[in-house]
Design a protein around this nucleic acid. Structure first.
Length: 918
RNA sequence: GGGCAGCUAGCUCAGUUGGUUAGAGCACCGCUUUUACACAGCGGGGGUCAAAGGUUCGAAUCCUUUGCUGCCCACCA
C-alpha cells in the first residue's frame, strides 16, 4: 500500500519526467523499433512540426499546436505505429532580419546594415536566431512534446540549403523559374519584394482628388495618389460610357505636368472601369498599380517608373521631383493643380491601403527585375504518384495543387477550407521568390563578369544556375563570377519541409519510411503561405503528396475573443500557466472546448479548472492505490463480482471506444470530454463511493486505474506518468504502454438496470433529503415498494409479472448496502405490490422516506401539486401527438411505442400522486 | 463587392445521419469539513436553440429570406 501526497504539484515532477522520456530514447522511432515496441503491421505515422519562427519565443497559440500534435503523436506511438514527430525551426527571413535590425537600432546603431556590413550583420542575426531557437526548444519540452530531437532541422541549415539549391536548379531547368522585369510588391522599409499574399490590406479614409491634367485635356480624373500621376500614360474609360466614347484612342501630350515631366496620355477603353466612381475615368499609372500594369500590358503602353526602391521620386517624374519623398511630391502636385486652376474637388472616401505583413509599412508597387515561379507553365511530371496524373501528362503547378485535393489524396479538415484553397489557387499569379534581404538562402545563380572584365562573349549574359558554386563561366571560361545578391522567400525553403527534413535529395530510409507524412497539423492562417506551397513544392519535386491529411486549428484568443497582443496586455504566456497550473492543465485547456478550424477563447479560469481536474485524477489514483495492495501492470479484463462492477466496466468499455473513435476522427475535444465525464462523474462520484461500501475490488480498481492512465496519457502525459511511476515503481514508462483496445463485449443488461433502479433510488433519496432539509448527518429510514412494471398494462398479476417482480425485488435488495450507504439511510424496508405512497420512480418502483417529524406537510403538498401540473403538460403533449393521425400513420412504430410507454408511465405517476394528496 | 463561419443557460461551448421534457463545464443559490480530493461532495435554479417563413406526422438539426458578429479574398482609381 502506498500513499501519495494530498495534492499534485506539477513542478515537482514535470522536469524529471521529461528527462526520463528523453533519456529513454523512445521519441526516436528507430529505438522503438529496436526494442520491439513497433507493430510492423501498423506501419508508420509521421508528422513534421510546423517550424516556429526564430523571431522570438512561443506564445499560447504554439502551445495549442504542441498540445494537439503531442496528443496525436503519443496516441499513435502507444498504438504501435512507427511514430515520428520531427521538430525544427524556421529562419523566417524578413521577420527575423527586421527584428534584429530593430534591436540593433534600439542599441544605438543607426543603420545596422550599413554600419556592420553583410557578414557582421548576419552574425548578429544568427546569434539572435540561436538564442531564440534555444528558448523555443526549451518551451517545447516544457509542454511535454515528444519530438524526435535527433532529427531536428532548421530551414536555413546546410542540409536544407542543399535541398533548396537542388529544387531551384530543377525548376529553372524545367522553365518554371524565370527572371523577369515585372510589377512587384515593394516594401520601402524592408527594402524588399513581397509575395502577393504577404501584402495585407488595411481599411482607411483617403482623400480623393478630382482634377484635369491640363486645360485642354477633355476628361477629369480622380485619384487618391496625385503624385503617381506623374507616371501616367493613359486614361481608361468604360467602352459603354457615352460621355467619353468620342475620345477613345485619342492621344494628348501634357507639357510639364505638375511642373515636372511631360506626359503622353492615350484614352483607352477598359471594360472594368466603373462609370459611377469618381469621374468614370481612370488615370493609368502602369509602374505603380497592379491594375494599371495589366491595362498597360493589354494596350501596349509604356511603363514609366517614377518611384524608386527607397520610396523617392525618380528623374522620370521631372527634375523638380527628383529625390523627393512620395508624400512631399503629393502635396506639391496638389498645390500645382490648384495654382493652375485644374483642381476640381477633394473628398474623403474609404480606401484599402496595402501594407507589409511583417512591418506594417505601406507597400509601393513598382516594376523590378526579380525571380519568379511560373504557376501556369506546362511541364511533365516523371515519377508521378498523383492520382489522375500520368508521368507523361502535361501539367502545371496550379493543376497539381488542385488535383491532389480534388482526388482526395489530401484531405483538409475541416473541409470548408478546401473551397478557400481552390479560390486562392484560381487567383494565383506567378510567385515572386527573390528577396533583397540578407538573412536567407542565397539564390544559387551566378553571373559572368567577363573573360577580361566587362568583355563577355555573346551568351555570357545568361544566368548561371548551379547547385554547387561554379568554377568558371561555361561560355567564356572566365573565373570572374558573381553570385546573385538576393535571397529566397522564406516559404521557398519551408515549402520543402516534409522531405528536406527527411534527407532529400539523398535517397534515405527516412524518406521511404516517413514520406508522404501522415498528418499536417497547423493553423488556418498559414493555409496559403505554407500548406499550399508545400503541396506545390512537394508534388513538383517528388511527384508525391507531402501529407495525407491537413488538420487546421484556429487562433487562441483572450476570454473576450480578442486577439492576444502586447499592447492590449491580454497575452497569456504558456510558461506562466505551466508554472502556475502545470503543463497538463495548460494542455487540457487548449485541447478541450476546441474544435477544428475554430478560434478558441482562453481564460485563466479555464486553465484553473483543468488544474482542478489534474488534481482530481491524482486524488482518484491516490484513493485507488490505498485499495490496491499489489498493483499489477499486465491487466486483463477482470471478472465482475457485483452489478456495480458490471456497470463501471461497461462504461469503461464504452469510454475506450468513444475516446478512440473521437481521436481517430480528429475530435480531440469530444474525446477528452468523454474521458473526463467517465473519470469524474462515473468513476469518482459513483463507483469509488460504492467501492468504499462493497470493498474487495482490488483487481477491478487496478484494471480501471491502469486503463484510465493509458487513456489519459496523450492528453496529460506528466501527471499520468507520475502516477504510473508511483503505482508500478520500477516499471517501464507509461508512454510506451499499449493504448487500451475496445473489447467488443456487449453492454451488460444488468449494468443498465443498475442505472434504472439503484442510481435512481439513490438520487431520489438524496434530492428528497435536500428538499426536506434533512441534515446530512442524520440517518433516516426508507421503504421501497416494487410492483409490476407499467410496460405490461394489466391489473392481474400473472405468472410472468410475478416472475418479473421477483427478479426486480431481488436485484434491488441485493444492492441494499449501496442504497443505504449512498442515500445515508439507517434502515430500508422492501415490499412487493403494496402500492405505497411515495415517490414513483417508474417501472413500478416507489420510494418513501420516513420523514416523520421533518416533513412540512404544506410544503410537500405544494411540491406534489407542482409535479402534477408539469406531468399534465407533458401528458397533453404526448396525447395530442398520439391523437394526430398523421403522426400515427407516418412515424416508425418504435417511435410510437415509445410515446405510448411515456404516456402510460406519466399517467400512472399522476394517479399515484393524486392518491397521495387525498 | 465576393465568399466562409458563428449566433443554444450569466459565460465558454457540445448536440454525428430530423424522433426522451435540449446537455456539459464554469459561474450562481442552498447544504456538508462523511479520513482520496474544499483544486471537494450532495442538492438546486436557469434556455420560446438570433428572427421570420417553408418542408415534414415531427425541426436546435433540412430549405429560403433577414438581422447581427467575426474572418478570408478582391485591381473601385
Amino acid at each position: 500500500m502506498k500513499e501519495l501526497p494530498k495534492a499534485y504539484e506539477p513542478k515537482k515532477y514535470e522536469n524529471d519526467i521529461y528527462k526520463r522520456w528523453e533519456e529513454s530514447g523512445f521519441f526516436n522511432p528507430d529505438n522503438c523499433e529496436k526494442f520491439g515496441l513497433v507493430d510492423g503491421a501498423k506501419g508508420s505515422f509521421s508528422m513534421v512540426l510546423p517550424p516556429p519562427n526564430v523571431t522570438g519565443t512561443l506564445h499560447i497559440g504554439h502551445a495549442s499546436m504542441l498540445a494537439i500534435q503531442d496528443l496525436v503523436t503519443r496516441y499513435k506511438r502507444m498504438q504501435g505505429f512507427r511514430t515520428l514527430w520531427l521538430p525544427g525551426t524556421d529562419h523566417a527571413a524578413i521577420a527575423t532580419q527586421t527584428k534584429v535590425e530593430k534591436l540593433l537600432i534600439e542599441k544605438g546603431i543607426k543603420d545596422p546594415k550599413k554600419e556592420l556590413g553583410r557578414d557582421k550583420f548576419l552574425a548578429e542575426v544568427e546569434k539572435f536566431a540561436q538564442e531564440s531557437h534555444d528558448t523555443i526548444i526549451d518551451q517545447c519540452k516544457k509542454m511535454g512534446s515528444s519530438m524526435d530531437w535527433s532529427r531536428e532541422s532548421y530551414t536555413l541549415d546546410e542540409a536544407r540549403n542543399l535541398a533548396v539549391r537542388t529544387v531551384f536548379k530543377k525548376m529553372y531547368d524545367d522553365g518554371l523559374i524565370y527572371r523577369g522585369y515585372r510589377l512587384v510588391n515593394w516594401c520601402p522599409r524592408c527594402k524588399s519584394t513581397l509575395a502577393d499574399d504577404e501584402v495585407e490590406h488595411k481599411e482607411q479614409i483617403a482623400k480623393l482628388y478630382t482634377f484635369k491634367y491640363s486645360k485642354d485635356f477633355p476628361i477629369a480624373i480622380a485619384t487618391t495618389r496625385p503624385e503617381t500621376k506623374l507616371g501616367d500614360v493613359a486614361v481608361a474609360v468604360s467602352p459603354e460610357d457615352v460621355r467619353y466614347a468620342k475620345y477613345i484612342d485619342q492621344e494628348f501630350v501634357i507639357k510639364n505636368f505638375g511642373g515636372g515631366a511631360d506626359l503622353k496620355i492615350k484614352i483607352i477603353a477598359e471594360a472594368g472601369v466603373d462609370t459611377t466612381f469618381g469621374t468614370g475615368a481612370v488615370g493609368v499609372t502602369p509602374a505603380h498599380s497592379a491594375t494599371d500594369y495589366e491595362m498597360a500590358q493589354r494596350n501596349d503602353l509604356p511603363i514609366i517608373k517614377i518611384i524608386d526602391e527607397d520610396g523617392l521620386m525618380t528623374k522620370e517624374a521631372g527634375e523638380k521631383y527628383l529625390g523627393k519623398a512620395v508624400k512631399v511630391a503629393r502635396a506639391e502636385v496638389v498645390e500645382w493643380l490648384k495654382a493652375n486652376n485644374l483642381f476640381e474637388k477633394e473628398e474623403e472616401v474609404p480606401n484599402n491601403l496595402s501594407i507589409c505583413y511583417r512591418c506594417g509599412y505601406a507597400i509601393e508597387p513598382l516594376p523590378s527585375r526579380q525571380w519568379f515561379v511560373d504557376v501556369n507553365k506546362e511541364f511533365i511530371l516523371p515519377n508521378s504518384s498523383i492520382e489522375g496524373i500520368k508521368s507523361s501528362d502535361k501539367v502545371t503547378l496550379k493543376k497539381l495543387m488542385q488535383q491532389v485535393i480534388n482526388n482526395k489524396q489530401i484531405e483538409i479538415i475541416p473541409d470548408r477550407f478546401e473551397k478557400i484553397y481552390f479560390h486562392w489557387i484560381n487567383n494565383l499569379r506567378d510567385w515572386c521568390i527573390s528577396r533583397q534581404i540578407w538573412y536567407g538562402h542565397r539564390i544559387p545563380v551566378w553571373y559572368c563578369r567577363g573573360l577580361d572584365k566587362g568583355k563577355c562573349l555573346p551568351g555570357c549574359e545568361k544566368p548561371l544556375v548551379s547547385v554547387d558554386v561554379p568554377q568558371k563561366c561555361p561560355n567564356c571560361g572566365s573565373v570572374d563570377l558573381v553570385q546573385d545578391p538576393d535571397t529566397l522567400d522564406t516559404w521557398f525553403s519551408s515549402g520543402l519541409w516534409t522531405f528536406s527534413t527527411l534527407g532529400w535529395p539523398n535517397k534515405t530510409i527516412d524518406l521511404k519510411n516517413f514520406h508522404p507524412t501522415s498528418l499536417l497539423e497547423t493553423g488556418y492562417d498559414i493555409l496559403f503561405f505554407w500548406v499550399a506551397r508545400m503541396i506545390l513544392m512537394t508534388t513538383y519535386t517528388l511527384g508525391q503528396i507531402p501529407f495525407e491529411k491537413v488538420y487546421l486549428h484556429g487562433l487562441v484568443r483572450d476570454e473576450k475573443g480578442r486577439k492576444m497582443s502586447k499592447s492590449l496586455g491580454n497575452v497569456i504566456n504558456p510558461l506562466d500557466t505551466i508554472s502556475e497550473f502545470g503543463a497538463d492543465a495548460t494542455r487540457l485547456s487548449l485541447l478541450l472546448g476546441n474544435t477544428p478550424g475554430n478560434d478558441l477563447k482562453l481564460s485563466q479560469e479555464k486553465v484553473e479548472g483543468f488544474r482542478n481536474f489534474t488534481n482530481k485524477l491524482w486524488n482518484i489514483s491516490r484513493f485507488m492505490l490505498l485499495n490496491i495492495p499489489n498493483p499489477k501492470m499486465d491487466v486483463k479484463l477482470p471478472e465482475a463480482k457485483t452489478v456495480s462492477d458490471k456497470w463501471i466496466l461497461t462504461h469503461l468499455s464504452e469510454t475506450i471506444e468513444d475516446t478512440r473513435s473521437n481521436i481517430d476522427s480528429y475530435q480531440f475535444s469530444l474525446a477528452g470530454e468523454k474521458l473526463r465525464d467517465f473519470t469524474w462523474n462515473e468513476l469518482a462520484d459513483w463507483y469509488l463511493e460504492i467501492a468504499k461500501i462493497e470493498g474487495g475490488k482490488e483487481e477491478i480498481l487496478n484494471y480501471i486505474l491502469n486503463t484510465i492512465l493509458k487513456l489519459w496519457h496523450p492528453f496529460m502525459p506528466f501527471v499520468t506518468e507520475a502516477i504510473w511511476k508511483e503505482t508500478y515503481r520500477d516499471a517501464e514508462l507509461l508512454m510506451m504502454q499499449k493504448y487500451p483496445d475496445f473489447n467488443q463485449k456487449k453492454a451488460e443488461e444488468e449494468a443498465l438496470l443498475f442505472e434504472l433502479y439503484i442510481v435512481r433510488i439513490i438520487s431520489k433519496t438524496r434530492s428528497l433529503r435536500a428538499d426536506f432539509k434533512v441534515k446530512p448527518s442524520s440517518k433516516i429510514n426508507a421503504l421501497i415498494d416494487i410492483a409490476g412494471s407499467v410496460f405490461i398494462p394489466t391489473v392481474e398479476i400473472d405468472q410472468q409479472i410475478e416472475k418479473e417482480i421477483q427478479e426486480k425485488f431481488k436485484f434491488i435488495k441485493n444492492n441494499e448496502a449501496i442504497i443505504k450507504g449512498l442515500g445515508r439511510l439507517e434502515h430500508v424496508d422492501f415490499s412487493m405490490n403494496k402500492f405505497i405512497n411515495g415517490s414513483h420512480l417508474g417501472r413500478g418502483v416507489t420510494l418513501a422516506l420516513d420523514l416523520a417529524g421533518v416533513v412540512d406537510l404544506e410544503k410537500e403538498k405544494d411540491r406534489l401539486q407542482k409535479e402534477i401540473e408539469s406531468l399534465n403538460k407533458y401528458i397533453s403533449g404526448i396525447e395530442s401527438k398520439l391523437s394526430n393521425t398523421d403522426f400515427v400513420e407516418h412515424a416508425p412504430s418504435a417511435v410510437i411505442e415509445k410515446e405510448k410507454q411515456k404516456l402510460a408511465e406519466a399517467k400512472e405517476k399522476i394517479s399515484k400522486i393524486s392518491n397521495q394528496l387525498k
